[in-house]
Structures are given as structure tokens and as C-alpha cells.
Design a protein around this nucleic acid. Structure first.
Lengths: 157, 157
DNA sequence: GCTCAATCTGGGAATCATTCTCATTTATGG
DNA sequence: CCATAAATGAGAATGATTCCCAGATTGAGC
């Protein structure tokens, strides 16, 4: 991934609260929601209000230091941009798995496609049905078919 | 893209309301939010309540007929899965552009990585700052620097 | 055509993450 | 120590989505 220092127009020194927030994200070792972060910092020596957490998250995102993705539930998850990972998520139960091997290596947009944007980060997310939810849905479907009262099939799963 | 017919466990005939919803999405020619769809259908001969819109959208998503992505604002946008496109979105103002050329062609997960999931769809989204927001931020930053009444420099990183 | 049960539907309340408001606190410079 | 600006957080406001439930619709069986 290209280093941001050369590109970002505002490459600001972070305030101590911003450092604190980013550090908490790094320590977590996994993506956290705004609420998660608030809860974690609440326990620390210098708690941070929810409004402040969200304010800084947005700022850090615009500075390219933090990226954000959304679960199917709508919950927003944040992580440091240097932690560039992708996921496989069940659209039913919401369970998500980190992908070990990034399926795309050099992921970049051409200059033309950039339209003058300053690139900050990207998300690549896969969605599907996890084995449990597949089973549950198959079961429900069978019941529906039975209820529909038919003859022939039930292609033996 | 692999056709779903062979894969999806429940490849159900859609109810007429579900067809109506999917058709509205197709006609729109762009991604729509649940609220958008509700508003559009409200005008039709057979309006659909908000609860029903969301119910069917979820169901269609689990059947692999509809995919969903989230704007930075958290708003969820839906589109038919056959319409497989990606975007470049400004993390500040939220403006989004459709990418004309998909930057990745064959995007697939290995069997091992699938963990038994039934793949339904994926999203690949790029985020950055649009030219306007870059300018605005540069301006703000300069003011800040002036206000800070500098001297030497930003201790680089 | 009629009856009954199961399903579908939509209005409105409930939820919940996020944002906004604004009074207070903190930092900075003089 | 004073004055001004920036940062902060408590709590209200917002807004999308989901939940609840009573009424409407459907389809099977008669």
C-alpha cells in the first residue's frame, strides 16, 4: 500500500486524544464500533465521551488513518488503515470471518478513474450464507414444501 | 459470475410483492435505499408499507437476488445482484461515483476460504476525498497553521 | 361459494447507533 | 492572571430500521 505521507493534503500531528483513540484501535487487534471504543476508553484513566469518539473517528477517517466498514446490521466497524483486511460475512446471522489471503493484491484505481479524488482506503467484502443458516433455510423451505402438500420431489438434499 | 440457480439452496419463486420490489429496483437504474423504494412504490397502484419493503429486501438478499452496500452515512443502498458495480465515495461529503471499469475481474474465494459459506455477492468500494473536500480541508489546515502561529516546522511524523 | 388456518401486510411504537446542541472545561498566548 | 479559541461531554434530537400486533388476504378442503 502506498504510504500516505506524500499524498495526504493534511497530514496532521494527532492530538493526544486522537492518539489515544488510534492506539486503542491498534491494541484491540480487531475492528471496533464507536460504542466499543467508547466502552473501552470509559475504563481507562482518561475516558472519552461518545460524541468525542465519533468526532475523532470521522476526522481520522478523513485523514486516511482509519477505515470503516459496515456490517449487514448497519453497525460501523473501525480499524487502523494499516490493517488492511477483508471479510466473509453471513447475511443472515451476521457472523464474519477474516480472510487470510487477500484475493486481490495490487488494488488500485487508474488516474482517470480517480476523478481527482485523494484515495484513502477501500473495502472488499464478501457476503454469503454460513453453513448453519443454510441448514436452517433448507429446513424452513422443506417445511414450506411439505405444507404446500406436494407429491413428487424433495430432491434429497 | 456463476449463476445462482445451481447453488442456492432455496431458489424460490418470488411472491408478486417481491417481484414488484425487485422490478422497481431494476427500473430505477441506480441503487436505492429502503426509504427510496418505499417512496417509489407509494406512488404505484399497489403501495407497499415500509416494514414490508424491508422484510422483502432482507429476504431477497438472503436469496442472492439483491445486494446491499452502506454509504459512509450509514444509509443502506440496494441493487439487483446482476448489476455488479463498484464505487468511489468521498468520506467527507458522501458523493459517490460509479466505476466504469471494474478493477478486479474474476473475483472469487477459494474453496478453503469459503468455510462452507454459500457465496451470494460481494462489495468492493473505494473511499477518498473529492476535490472540493480536499480544497476545503487544505484551506482549514492553512488557517490552523496560521493560527498556531508556527515557527519552525511540523516535526515530521 | 364457504370456512378455516396460515400467511402477509402496514401503521405506529420501539430501538439504537450516530449526530447535534450547548454550557463547561481546558489550552494557549499575552 | 486574563482573554480568546478550541475541545469536551451530557443529554436531546435524528433517522433508518425493526418490532408488534391486529386486520386483510390467500388457498386448501369441502
Amino acid at each position: 500500500m502506498a504510504h500516505r505521507s506524500a499524498l495526504v493534503p493534511v497530514a496532521p500531528k494527532l492530538s493526544s486524544r486522537q492518539e489515544q483513540l488510534l492506539e486503542a484501535l491498534r491494541r484491540a487487534g480487531r475492528e471496533l464500533s464507536g460504542q466499543d471504543l467508547h466502552a473501552r476508553l470509559r475504563a481507562s484513566a482518561t475516558p472519552m465521551g461518545l460524541a468525542t469518539v465519533y468526532r475523532h473517528l470521522r476526522q481520522l477517517q478523513q485523514w486516511g488513518r482509519v477505515r470503516c466498514r459496515h456490517l449487514p446490521s448497519g453497525e460501523a466497524l473501525f480499524a487502523p488503515t494499516e490493517c488492511d483486511e477483508h471479510h466473509l460475512t453471513c447475511v443472515d446471522c451476521g457472523q464474519t470471518h477474516r480472510l487470510e489471503h487477500c484475493p486481490v493484491h495490487a488494488l488500485e484505481l487508474s488516474g482517470e478513474e480517480l476523478r481527482g479524488y485523494l484515495p484513502l482506503f477501500h473495502t472488499l467484502e464478501f457476503y454469503g450464507l454460513c453453513p448453519d443458516c443454510q441448514r436452517r433455510q433448507r429446513r424452513t423451505a422443506s417445511e414450506a414444501v411439505e405444507a404446500a402438500g406436494q407429491s413428487a420431489s424433495l430432491p434429497s438434499a
